[in-house]
Design a binder for these strands. Structure first.
Length: 546
DNA sequence: ACGAAATAG
DNA sequence: CGTTCTATTTCGT
């Protein structure tokens, strides 16, 4: 019912997203879902939280740095953040992990009985953990936000492992990942105690089917409340323990209408921690924009037109904010903050091709007076009228035009009767986004990463091959909670927490930026000044490229 | 192409 | 607290 202004949240998430993108070499930086907004009562003040989750595939950075790592002096390693400038980066201790591990073991005991493969994997995870630690440190220093991070080799595990130490913690799942003859498998051990519904990709429906199968009884909730959490616990371990478990068996159980094909194999993989999905490429335009509102009662044409006016006004405003950019400067967040909306010329970065109207009719009363709970939505769509892209005409009149020319005809298709319906929800959306030339350009204004990303074509040649490496990726999943107070200020909700015991993270005081200004020699090859701490890495850098 | 459904946060 | 709003992907037709 409330048309809350979420612009500030979107701005904050955009700033954070671009900050992270600036570090990536591959631009594989994927936002998970969208910003979560929830109301939060605390200290008699209504506060709002946005949660913002991102995956980053840092495989290329880790592998490059593994190549240039000086194995004779792991304790004083230098992590290169730029593939072209060996002086950009930070020092770290490559003989140990940064932050927490799972399981939590002492590094001495952990290093015993290691195969070369496990040693190498551990080393790569170490690098990933130090990169995560560095980026988190920079994020807090430069933007004032803290975050929680999970480091692993797949999206699945990096997401789940990040939950282990929060807030303000980071966790790395350590090998061994593959049981060799009675050996342990930390991925399985970690997943086993999770509720099946906690596995990303196993939503409400799939989880219920699996619970019903394991319990041998109809899907059972502890109490009448059909809201998440209060159901019987069926764990991943219980499912993996089923003797008859197989892809085929799961396909039979879970397949059918509404389920993707191959769901059995997919869930079978997830149960064993197998997930080969890629971190998607960073985007600067969304695939879709939609605005919706829910209603206790909406049953007259007059009300509908009123609501459509509000929804389409907001939709057009969102299109202008999220799908346009100024000619020269892409940093439109700060543009908008300074109210330069009208002054600077804007260009469309993306053009949606489809306009869609969705409603959720309230089901009629049953004979006994009860009402079925249904959340079924129905929708109709048309091509987006071209006038919606006008940047001169005012939003209100554009909205009126969209209603009379497109939305009302769609509404009539959905609800041919003049009355008799009662809607609990109305949604207006634009989809089928086509990214235009300006939208595909690299974003992120004057961030350091801009320089790195311009070198992507060079990076391809340099990319270290992971020969026959099936578990090659290093993924980082980062989640961040930002709180916006009623006065509009944006703070970190956990910053008021007393120094939450994060022992390993306090080490950051040791190697701060002063070191990077310490005097060094000239490199004979490129005549640049190279700080002493970066010399070894720098030599490897030249070696690798000649 | 279109509409529905599942998932996520 | 109670469960809204936004977004993506995939499937059947």
């Amino acid at each position: 019912m409330l048309g809350e202004d979420l612009t500030r949240f979107r701005d904050a998430s955009k700033v954070l997203y671009n900050f992270l993108r600036a570090y990536s070499w591959s631009d594989k930086v994927e936002r998970l879902g969208f910003d979560e907004v929830r109301d939060w009562g605390r200290n008699e003040i209504a506060q709002r939280l946005i949660s913002f989750q991102v995956w980053m595939d840092v495989t290329d950075m880790v592998d490059y740095n593994l190549e240039v790592l000086n194995r004779n002096d792991l304790g004083n390693a230098f992590f290169q953040l730029s593939p072209t400038d060996p002086t950009v980066g930070f020092t770290f201790d490559a003989s140990r992990v940064a932050g927490h591990t799972w399981p939590a073991v002492s590094s001495a005991e952990e290093h015993e009985h290691s195969s070369p493969e496990i040693y190498l994997l551990r080393q790569r995870l170490y690098l990933g953990s130090h990169l995560a630690m560095y980026i988190r440190h920079q994020l807090e220093e430069q933007k004032g936000y803290t975050c929680t991070v999970g480091i692993s080799t797949t999206k699945l595990i990096s997401k789940l492992i990040g939950n282990v130490n929060k807030p303000k913690g980071q966790t790395t799942l350590m090998p061994p990942f593959e049981a060799e003859e009675g050996g342990k498998n930390n991925i399985n051990d970690f997943l086993d105690h999770h509720d099946i519904g906690a596995i990303p990709g196993v939503g409400f429906k799939l989880a219920q089917k699996l619970r019903e199968y394991v319990l041998g009884a109809p899907a059972d909730f502890e109490f009448g409340l059909v809201y998440g959490g209060t159901r019987e616990n069926v764990t991943v371990g219980m499912i993996r323990g089923l003797p008859e478990l197989s892809s085929e068996m799961l396909e039979k159980l879970l397949g059918g209408p509404g389920s993707p094909h191959g769901i059995g194999a997919k869930v079978f993989g997830l149960i064993y921690g197998v997930d080969d999905t890629e971190v998607g490429p960073a985007r600067n335009v969304p695939h879709q924009i939609s605005i919706e509102d829910s209603y206790i009662r909406l049953d007259t044409m007059e009300q509908v037109i009123n609501e459509l006016q509000m929804l389409s006004t907001r939709l057009i405003q969102r299109m202008r904010i999220d799908l346009t950019t100024t000619e020269d400067d892409e940093d439109d967040v700060s543009e908008m903050k300074h109210g330069n909306l009208e002054s600077a010329p804007k260009k469309w970065m993306g053009r949606p091709e489809t306009l869609r109207l969705t409603t959720r009719p309230r089901p009629p009363l049953n004979a006994d007076g009860t009402r079925n709970r249904t959340f079924k939505r129905i929708s109709r769509s048309v091509p987006v009228p071209s006038f919606m892209f006008s940047l001169q005409e005012n939003v209100q009149s554009l909205a009126s035009r969209v209603i009379s020319e497109a939305l009302l005809p769609l509404f009539k298709k959905l609800h041919p009767e003049k009355s008799g319906w009662n809607l609990s929800l109305v949604n207006v959306a634009v989809t089928d986004m086509v990214v235009t030339a300006s939208g595909s350009r690299d974003a992120a204004g004057r961030d350091i990463g801009k320089m790195f990303r311009q070198q992507n074509h060079v990076l391809d040649e340099w990319k270290i091959k992971d020969d026959a490496d099936d578990e090659g990726d290093i993924m980082v999943n980062m989640s961040n909670d930002v709180e916006v107070l009623p006065n509009g200020s944006i703070t970190d909700p956990f910053s008021r927490y007393e120094e939450a015991a994060m022992g390993s993270e306090s080490e950051w005081d040791e190697h701060s930026d002063e070191e990077s200004s310490e005097p060094g020699d000239w490199c004979q090859s490129c005549r640049n000044t190279i700080p002493n701490f970066a010399k070894t890495a720098h030599e490897r850098f030249h070696l690798l490229n000649e």
